[in-house]
């Protein structure tokens, strides 16, 4: 059974995320600080603000751990803000700098109603167009790593892929079957 690590970024409850990954047959562990145990995949959850999540992740000693995992091509899944922090910046917290694995920044959605709450289909050459569940006020508008987009006022990156890292702006753990297959694919390290 593949072992999956969920990083506790101290920004919200991780119960339903863990349950969603466990349902797929993975053996999931939540950790708040790194240790030497080896995992087959890593999940960075999607709760909290850009600046807070980055501060917590760095304070808890995850930065080197994640950079190393990225170099070692360990499958990783970043959800919502857990994807945005691997870009450079966010308008949500302008003074914070992300991991800069990918160029670009998160910007406020340009639509009268915020947050965006609900299901939207994906436009993607690699993934099915099945709707997935979004809850966000900020998004990465453009990236060379984009593999799926959706539109809310403007078109933004719904998913990105860079090396072994898959990032999704939506919440696959809340996206029924469409979400499950995306989690499965990202954590199995399968090519799209």
């Amino acid at each position: 059974m593949k072992k999956i690590l969920i990083i506790d970024t101290r920004a919200g409850n991780l119960f339903s995320l863990k349950a969603a990954i466990d349902r797929l047959g993975f053996n999931t562990t939540i950790r708040s600080t790194p240790d030497h145990e080896k995992f087959d995949g890593i999940v960075i959850p999607g709760q909290g603000r850009f600046g807070t999540v980055l501060n917590n992740i760095r304070a808890d000693g995850w930065e080197d751990y994640l950079n190393l995992a990225y170099q070692q091509s360990i499958p990783m899944l970043g959800i919502c803000v857990g994807m945005q922090i691997f870009f450079e910046h966010s308008d949500e917290d302008k003074e914070s700098t992300g991991f800069c694995w990918m160029k670009g920044k998160a910007e406020a959605l340009n639509f009268p109603k915020k947050p965006m709450v609900g299901w939207a289909p994906l436009t993607s050459e690699q993934w099915p167009s099945s709707p997935v569940y979004f809850v966000n006020s900020y998004a990465i508008r453009k990236s060379e790593h984009s593999i799926a987009t959706t539109t809310y006022g403007e078109t933004f990156c719904a998913a990105v892929k860079s090396g072994s890292f898959t990032g999704v702006q939506f919440h696959p753990e809340k996206s029924s079957k469409a979400g499950s297959s995306i989690i499965q694919q990202a954590l199995s390290g399968l090519e799209n």
Partner: peptide
């Protein structure tokens, strides 16, 4: 004036 923004496109689905 806000409602003039409503022509903005959205793929968000009615729930």
């Amino acid at each position: 004036s806000e409602s003039t923004d409503k022509h903005l496109t959205s793929q968000l689905m009615p729930r």
